[in-house]
Amino acid sequence: MAALASLGESAPAAEAKGPRSMQAGRRRRLNLFRYLVFTVFGLFFILPLLAMVRFSLEGSTLGTWSVAAWKQIASYPGPPPLLSAVEITLELAIISSGVVLVLLVPTMIWIRLRVRWISRAFEFLCLLPLTIPAIVLVVGLAPIYNKIRHYQLSALQLFWAYVILALPYAYRALSAGLTAIDVETLSEAARSLGASWLTVIVRVIAPNMRQAILNALVLTSALVLGEFTIAYLLLYNNMQVNLYYISRTTPNAGVLFAASSAALIFAFGLLLVLSYAGRRRRRGQG
């Protein structure tokens, strides 16, 4: 017992008294390693993007600067005009994120609270789209979209397909948020205070999944902003399809890269705003 006690005392004591310089050296080396990794991977990601932006700002002669290509985004002729394709993609991102959240958030909370036994089956269902190649999805969806086209509905109808595509990512993000809170206790506390099931979901559980909901939003939006295959194969025009057409027909590659950069910057901006919103909320609490 005495031996145990002395062991228990000596371990932290030794650590505290240990040579400070050695620890500091280790920390420095670790930091150096961190910065190195960060720099290498940062360059790997940022260099191609910077090159793309630089190319979009290329003037009429090599090595000069110009924003002409960027100015053309707004006025680039169609059919359909580039700007309208960008608009449609943004609208699709908003609609798809909204539908995914409205479908998934209450369902997942409900399953967690009341019908836990189907959670495995539900997870499988949500992750299934990951395993289905887009082309297979298109083959299945084509007859339905042929009918839709018959009624001359806009490209916004693509959101049906995008919701399915986004399910696995949104599910994963929301599921992580849901496991991070004590859903059972919170809901029981709310119910004992007189809350209905709807109140429990809307006013107690969902607000505590704020960060997870934002993550699901970011992932869904990012997916829609970059989607090409389904829109192209179903003969709809979204931003990516439009950029592809431009790349096929234009002698001016600058506008193509300007539009791609704009889309990227927009996505980055959205990501930043959403994650900043989540963090500010936390700090407000903290």
């Binding site: 206790t185 029981e188 506390a189 119910r191 007189g194 107690v204 607000p207 609490q285």
Partner: peptide, 17 residues
């Protein structure tokens, strides 16, 4: 929700938000 009983739980049950 209709029983009119106040309950305190073993786990911390305050609404975090």
């Amino acid at each position: 929700s209709k029983r009119d009983m106040g309950m305190v739980f073993q786990a911390y049950s305050l609404f975090p938000h």
